[in-house]
Design a protein around this nucleic acid. Structure first.
Length: 833
RNA sequence: GCGGGCGUGGCGGAAUUGGUAAACGCGCCAGAUUUAGGAUCUGGUGCCUCUCGGCUUGGGGGUUCGAGUCCCUCCGCCCGCACCA
C-alpha cells in the first residue's frame, strides 16, 4: 500500500490544523532563550492578498522557521494596517460603515494567509482600527503634547472646494481632485505637527549604525530626504525701511556678487513691502497665481522662471549697493527661509532670471585656470553661470582667497555686525498628522472657549470613533456634524467644549505596531516593559521598497520619541531590513488595468501552497525583481511531485533516521551520497545566512534529490541507511520553504515527532573530503586537460602528472616552460613560450 | 543635474578569498516507456567550426601565470530625489 498521489490541498489542510491545535508557533518572552524577532510589513486589508504579499510573507516565513529550527525563540506576528481612505470610499459606495468593510476584508485575508501555512503566532494578531489599539497612540499623542513635541500651526494644504476636504498630495492628479475632477486649491489650515525636524540630526546620524543591516539605497534615500546642508544665514537691511530679511545660502563666498533678491510668493514680508507700491495689485496677482498652482506643475522641470518686482530694495552688506527685491516662482517657502540672495554670475537659476529681466551681474569667483594666467572671467563670454570652485575677485579684502575658505571668512566678517552666522538647513519638514477624514484615530484634544486647546484626560481614553456614524455621499467626514461626538465638557473649567474632529494620519498607526506586538493584549499599558525589552529590536524586517522613506522614517522617528518619553529602550527599531523586489508579469508590475494579475488563490488551488512558496522563492533572489512565470510554477510543482515519488518509491526501505546519521559508508555510491548530503547542508546554511539566498538553497536541495535518484536503485538493497539519512536531510532543509509536504513525508519516513520541532542540521567538514580530486591542467591559462590525483597529493606529483598529459605535451612542444603554478586540489597552470 | 543599482545562453538566474563561466530550473532536441497523447525516466543543449581548435560574462584598455570577479575608461538600461538657494 503506497502513499498515493500527491494531493496538496489534503496534506496542507491536515498540517495547518495540527500546527494550529498544537500552538507550536505561539511564543512567550523567555530570558533563558535567545530571541529572534522577524517581522513583515503588515498589510492594508484591501480584501485579497496579491503576489507581492505572498513573496513578502514567504520570505519572512522561511526566516522564522529557519531561526526556530536553529533554536531561537522566534516572534513572528501578523496584523492589519486597518485605517485608511479605501474603506471610506467603499462605505460610501455600499452605504455601510467603514468598519464593516474592513473587518470583512480582514477575515477573508486572514483565511488566505492561513491557507499558505505561515508560522504566525495568531494570538498576537491586531487591527489598528480597534480602540484597544489606537487608545495607546492617543496616549502617546498626549505625552508628545505635554513635552512640546507636537504643536498646532497654520499650513497650506490641497483643498477641494467641491468635496470640502483636504487632499493628500497623492490624491491630486494633474491639479484636479481624483474624485470629482475639481481644480484643487491651496488653502491655509490649522493642523497638528509632530516635531520630526528636532530629530533630523539623530535620524541622519543613526543611519550610519544601520549600514550593515539596511540596503544602501534606502539609507541614501533617507539621507536625501532629510537633506541636511551646511551654509549660513545672512541678514539684509531694507532700504528706507526699518525691516530686515534673512536668507539661507550655501554660498556666502559669493555675497559680493549678489545683485538682487528673490522671495517666495508665500513670504510673509511681501504684503508689507508692497503696501505703498503703485503696482501692488500686479504683485498680488502674481503671488496668487503662483500659490494656486498645484505642486506638480510648480515643481515641473520646464517651468519658465518668472518673477515680479516688489518696488523694494535691500542693501548688500558688503558692497553697499542696492539690490531690487523680486517675487520669483522658483523660490520655495518650504526650503530655507523662503528668501534667496541672487548671484546670477554663479547660480544657474539666478543667471536665467537676471537674463530675462535684464538685472545686473557681477563675477566674483574666478576659475582656477584664469586665476593662474592672471585673467578674469568675462561676463560677455558667459552663456551660463560659473558654479565651480575658484578664487575670489571683485570682493574687496577677500580678493584672491579660494572660495572654500572665503565662505567662513565672509560669514565671520558679517557676524561682527550681527548680520551673519553659520547655519544648517534641512529639507525635512515637520510631519503634518492631521487628516480631515473619518476612518482614522481621533486626535484626543478638545477646544474650550475659555481654556483653549485642552488635552483629553488620560483616563477618558480612548476617544472612540462613533460606531453609528453615517458616511456622507460627498466624502466629507461625518464627525463635525455629530453633536454626540463633538460636544463635550472641558475638564479644566467644566464649561462646554468641542472635540477635535480631525483624525490622525494612518502612518501614525504603522509607526509603533511592531512594539505592540511584543505584548498585544495588555489592557493596562501599551506594553509590559520587560517583554518589550526582551523582544526588541526587530532582528529582521521585510517589506517593499516603496516604504523606503515614509513608513521607515516615521517608525524610526517614533521609536526615538517613545524612547524620550520613557517607553522604549532601543533607539532604532529595525536592526536588519530586507526590501524585497517587485513581482512582475510580462516585465510590468501586476495591475488590474494591464490585465496581468496572477491571483495567488488560483495558484494555491492548482498547485498548492508549497509549490507556490517554492516557486516564488526559487525564481529570483529576494531583493531582486521577480518575473512571474506560469511555466516556472509548473516546474516547482514538478519538483515537489518528484520528491513525493522519491519517498513513495523508497517507503519500504526507509527508517526514521535523522539527517547525517549514516557515516559508516561502504560503497562508492553511498560515499558520494553522504558527501553530497553534507555539502548540501553546508551550502544551504551558508546561503540562508548570507542575505537569504533561497534560490540557491533550493537549487542545492534539488541537486541532492537528483543524486538520490541516481543512486537509489543501487543502495536500496545494499545500504538503505544511506538513503534514509539523505532523505531526512532533504526534508529538513526544505521544511522552512515547503513545510507541509516535508511534514507529511517526514511522517511517511516513520518519524513520530513533527518536522517543525526538528533542529537545523549541521554538516561535518570531514565528510566533504574526497579520496581523489580532479585537477584542471592549463597551458598558458587555457584548459588542456584534467587529471585525477589523490587528495592533497604532493605538488611535485601533481605537476609531474600534469606534464605527462598527452594534450599538455602537445601544447608545450617546442616551447620553454617558464613557470608552473599549482593550486592544491584545484589546478595546474603551465606557463610556456 | 545629484544619488543608488544593474548589464552573464533562447528565458529566470548560478559562480567562497581572482582559479574549469553558465550550477539549478524553464524551454528546446533525442531515446526509453505508452495504442497514442500527457505524465514520467535517461541523455543532450553558449557561439563559430563541428576534426584539431577558436571565441564568449555591454564596448575598449590595464594589473596578473590566471579576471564575470580588481583598477581605468566609454556605452546602455532601471530606480529614487530634484528650480533645495
Amino acid at each position: 500500500m503506497g502513499i498515493g498521489k500527491y494531493q496538496p490541498e489534503k496534506i496542507e489542510n491536515k498540517w495547518q490544523d495540527i500546527w494550529q491545535k498544537s500552538g507550536c508557533f505561539e511564543v512567550e518572552a523567555d530570558k533563558s532563550k535567545d530571541k529572534y524577532y522577524v517581522l513583515e510589513m503588515f498589510p492594508y486589508p484591501s480584501g485579497k492578498i496579491h503576489m507581492g504579499h505572498v513573496r513578502n510573507y514567504s520570505i519572512g516565513d522561511v526566516v522564522a522557521r529557519f531561526k526556530a529550527m536553529q533554536g531561537y525563540n522566534v516572534l513572528h506576528p501578523m496584523g492589519w494596517d486597518a485605517f485608511g481612505l479605501p474603506a471610506e470610499n467603499a462605505a460610501i459606495k455600499n452605504n455601510s460603515h467603514p468598519a464593516a468593510w474592513t473587518y470583512q476584508n480582514i477575515s477573508e485575508m486572514r483565511e488566505q494567509l492561513k491557507r499558505l501555512g505561515y508560522s504566525y503566532d495568531w494570538r498576537r494578531e491586531m487591527a489598528s482600527c480597534r480602540p484597544e489599539y489606537y487608545k495607546w497612540e492617543q496616549l502617546f499623542f498626549l505625552k508628545f503634547l505635554e513635552k512640546g513635541l507636537i504643536y498646532r500651526k497654520n499650513s497650506p494644504v490641497n483643498w477641494c472646494p467641491d468635496c470640502h476636504t483636504v487632499l493628500a498630495n497623492e490624491q491630486v492628479e494633474d491639479g484636479l481632485c481624483w474624485r470629482c475632477d475639481s481644480e484643487v486649491q491651496q488653502k491655509d489650515m490649522e493642523q497638528w505637527f509632530l516635531r520630526i525636524t528636532d530629530y533630523a540630526d539623530e535620524l541622519l546620524d543613526d543611519l550610519d549604525s544601520l549600514d550593515k543591516g539596511w540596503p544602501e539605497r534606502v539609507l541614501t534615500m533617507q539621507r536625501n530626504w532629510i537633506g541636511k546642508s551646511y551654509g549660513s544665514e545672512l541678514t539684509f537691511r531694507f532700504k528706507g525701511m526699518d525691516e530686515t530679511v534673512t536668507v539661507f545660502t550655501t554660498r556666502p563666498d559669493t555675497l559680493f556678487g549678489a545683485t538682487f533678491m528673490s522671495l517666495a510668493a508665500e513670504h510673509p514680508l511681501v504684503e508689507k513691502l508692497i503696501e505703498n507700491y503703485e503696482k501692488a495689485d500686479e504683485v498680488r496677482a502674481f503671488c496668487d497665481k503662483v500659490r494656486n498652482m498645484d505642486r506638480i506643475k510648480r515643481g515641473a522641470d520646464d517651468l519658465e522662471k518668472e518673477g515680479v518686482f516688489t518696488g523694494a530694495y535691500v542693501v548688500n552688506p558688503v558692497t553697499g549697493k542696492d539690490m531690487p527685491v523680486y517675487v520669483a516662482n522658483f523660490v520655495l517657502m518650504a526650503y530655507g527661509t523662503g528668501a534667496v540672495m541672487a548671484v546670477p554670475a554663479h547660480d544657474q537659476r539666478d543667471f536665467e532670471f537676471a537674463t530675462k529681466y535684464d538685472l545686473p551681474m557681477q563675477v566674483v569667483i574666478n576659475p582656477p585656470d584664469l586665476h593662474k594666467s592672471g585673467d578674469i572671467l568675462n561676463l560677455e563670454n558667459m552663456d551660463a553661470a560659473y558654479t565651480d570652485p575658484g578664487f575670489l575677485v571683485n570682493s574687496g579684502q577677500f580678493d584672491g582667497t579660494d572660495n572654500e575658505s572665503a565662505k567662513k571668512a565672509v560669514v565671520e566678517h558679517l557676524d561682527k555686525e550681527g548680520l551673519g552666522k553659520m547655519a544648517v538647513n534641512y529639507r525635512l519638514r515637520d510631519w503634518n498628522v492631521s487628516r480631515q477624514r473619518f476612518w482614522g484615530a481621533p486626535i484626543p484634544v478638545m477646544y474650550c472657549d475659555a481654556c483653549g486647546v485642552v488635552p483629553v484626560p488620560e483616563d477618558e481614553l480612548p476617544v472612540q470613533l462613533p460606531e453609528n456614524a453615517q458616511v456622507r455621499a460627498d466624502g466629507r467626514s461625518p464627525l463635525p456634524m455629530m453633536d454626540e461626538f463633538v460636544n463635550c465638557t472641558c475638564p479644566k473649567c467644566g464649561g462646554a467644549a468641542r472635540r477635535e474632529t480631525d483624525t490622525l494620519d494612518t502612518f501614525f498607526e504603522s509607526s509603533w505596531y511592531f512594539l505592540r506586538y511584543c505584548d498585544p493584549r495588555n489592557a493596562d499599558a501599551p506594553w509590559d516593559r520587560e517583554s518589550l525589552d526582551y523582544w526588541m529590536q526587530v532582528d529582521q524586517y521585510i517589506g517593499g521598497i516603496e516604504h523606503a522613506i515614509l513608513h521607515l522614517l516615521y517608525a524610526r522617528f517614533f521609536t526615538k520619541l517613545l524612547r524620550d518619553c520613557g517607553y522604549v529602550t532601543a533607539a532604532e527599531p529595525f536592526a536588519n531590513l530586507l526590501t524585497q523586489g517587485m513581482v512582475l508579469k510580462d516585465g510590468a508590475k501586476m495591475s488590474k488595468s494591464k490585465g496581468n494579475v496572477v491571483a495567488p488563490s488560483e495558484m494555491i488551488k492548482k498547485y498548492g501552497a508549497d509549490a507556490t512558496r517554492l516557486f516564488i522563492l526559487f525564481a529570483a533572489p529576494p531583493a531582486k525583481e521577480l518575473e512571474w512565470s506560469d511555466r516556472g510554477i509548473e516546474g516547482a510543482y514538478r519538483f515537489i511531485n518528484r520528491l513525493w515519488r522519491l519517498v513513495e518509491d523508497l517507503e519500504e526501505v526507509l527508517t526514521p533516521a535523522k539527517p547525517v546519521s549514516y557515516s559508516d559508508t561502504k560503497s562508492e555510491a553511498a560515499k558520494n551520497l553522504r558527501r553530497k548530503e553534507h555539502d548540501t547542508i553546508r551550502r544551504a546554511t551558508r546561503d540562508i545566512e548570507n542575505d537569504f539566498q533561497f534560490n540557491t538553497v533550493i537549487a542545492a536541495i534539488m541537486e541532492l534529490v537528483n543524486e538520490l535518484y541516481g543512486c537509489k536503485e543501487e543502495l536500496k538493497a545494499t545500504e538503505p541507511e544511506a538513503l534514509s539519512s539523505a532523505v531526512a536531510t532533504v526534508l529538513t532543509l526544505l521544511a522552512p520553504i515547503a513545510p507541509h509536504i516535508c511534514e507529511e513525508l517526514w511522517e511517511v519516513q516513520g518519524h513520530k515527532e513533527r518536522m517543525v520541532d526538528q533542529p537545523w542540521p549541521t554538516h561535518d567538514d570531514s565528510a566533504l573530503v574526497r579520496d581523489e580530486v580532479t585537477v584542471v591542467v592549463q597551458v598558458c591559462g587555457k584548459v588542456r586537460g584534467k587529471i585525477t590525483v589523490p587528495n592533497n597529493a604532493p605538488q611535485e606529483d601533481v605537476e609531474k602528472a600534469a606534464m605527462e598529459q598527452e594534450n599538455v605535451t602537445k601544447h608545450i612542444e617546442g616551447k620553454t616552460v617558464r613557470k608552473v603554478i599549482v593550486i592544491p586540489n584545484k589546478l595546474v597552470n603551465i606557463v610556456a613560450n
